[in-house]
């Protein structure tokens, strides 16, 4: 967890101090996309090869799907309604009603 916070802070500081060479600076977007693909691919492998996940899927998958959808729906609804109720400060872009 410290590694992860450290990575964000390091990236921030290196950008502010302009420490990266030009060829890396201009390719930061590509680097991010590449890392994202690698991350999701390796997460996929660990899920697909996790016998605990695969073996419990047929029996418990339905329940888990209902619960995951309902927790997501509940949390999105609460944040959305929170933004709506503070209309005067929250812009439409952020999820509020102010134009």
């Amino acid at each position: 967890m410290l590694l992860l916070i450290g990575a964000v802070v390091l990236g921030f500081v290196m950008a502010r101090l302009d420490l990266l060479p030009r060829f890396l600076h201009v390719r930061m977007g590509h680097l991010g996309t590449l890392a994202l693909i690698l991350l999701l691919f390796s997460m996929g492998i660990s899920m697909g090869s996790n016998s605990e996940i695969i073996s419990s899927l047929p029996k418990l998958g339905g329940k888990a799907l209902v619960l995951s959808i309902s927790t997501i729906a509940g949390s999105v609804f609460f944040v959305w309604i929170g933004m709506r109720l503070t209309t005067e400060k929250t812009s439409k872009k952020l999820g509020g009603a102010r134009q």
Binding site: L3, L20, G29, A35, G48, S51
Partner: peptide, 29 residues
């Protein structure tokens, strides 16, 4: 790869760290 890969979690951690580095980098811009 039903047995998984030996260094898979290191790959995941490395990719995640690199990714968060770029997020921090973007934030600074």
């Amino acid at each position: 790869l039903p047995g998984g890969l030996p260094f898979l979690s290191s790959i995941t951690d490395g990719a995640l760290a690199l990714l968060l580095f770029t997020v921090g980098y973007d934030l600074a811009q």
